Amino acid sequence: MVDWDGIERSEEFRELVKKRRSFVVPATIFFLAYYMAFIIVAGYAPDFMGESVYEGLTVGYCYALTQFVMVFVLGIWYLRKAEKEFDPLSDAVAAAGVADEETGRFERGEPRQEVAR
């Protein structure tokens, strides 16, 4: 039986969570800011968004299309980072959990009490 609480307290798991969070939080903030900026500019500067860039292609369409590109780039970036950093760390966490089941590195805390409903 795997001690999930022990794994959660382990250094390997904490490092994994820290590294993943250090990528996901800024990427999410960037994505939301980029998207909200589009909505704000569309609402407050419709003339600017309606300016033609090339034969009917407007600034607004270009901005909207760059959002698809941005999501694609962020997705690919996350996948590459996961492959290089997060997956090896998660493998280390899993290996530590299996190995520690045999060696007893993770000590079980107090058993959780079931709450009667």
Rank of each mutant, 00 (worst) to 15 (best):
W4V: 07
I7Q: 07
E8M: 13
R9I: 08
R9A: 12
R9D: 15
S10C: 08
S10L: 05
E12S: 15
R14L: 14
R14P: 09
K18P: 00
K19M: 12
K19D: 15
R20N: 07
R20I: 08
S22Y: 06
S22N: 13
S22E: 06
V25S: 09
F30Y: 05
F30W: 06
F31K: 02
F31C: 05
A33E: 07
A33L: 12
Y35L: 09
M36R: 05
A37G: 11
F38T: 10
F38H: 08
F38R: 10
I40H: 04
V41M: 02
V41T: 09
V41N: 07
A42R: 08
A42L: 11
G43S: 04
G43R: 05
Y44W: 03
A45K: 00
D47K: 05
M49S: 09
M49H: 01
M49C: 02
G50P: 05
Y54V: 02
L57S: 00
L57Y: 12
L57N: 00
T58I: 10
V59N: 05
V59C: 02
G60Q: 05
G60M: 03
C62I: 09
C62Y: 04
Y63K: 00
A64S: 12
Q67F: 10
V69P: 01
M70R: 00
V71D: 01
F72K: 13
F72A: 15
W77Y: 12
L79G: 15
L79H: 09
L79W: 12
R80H: 04
K81S: 03
E83G: 01
K84E: 10
K84D: 01
E85L: 12
E85R: 15
F86S: 02
F86V: 14
D87M: 00
D87G: 06
P88L: 03
S90E: 10
A92G: 01
A94Q: 07
A94G: 15
G97R: 02
G97K: 00
G97T: 04
A99Y: 07
A99H: 11
D100A: 15
E101H: 10
E102F: 04
E102I: 14
T103G: 10
R105F: 04
F106Q: 04
E107A: 15
R108Q: 05
G109S: 01
P111M: 03
R112Y: 11
E114A: 14
E114I: 09
V115R: 11
V115N: 14
R117D: 08
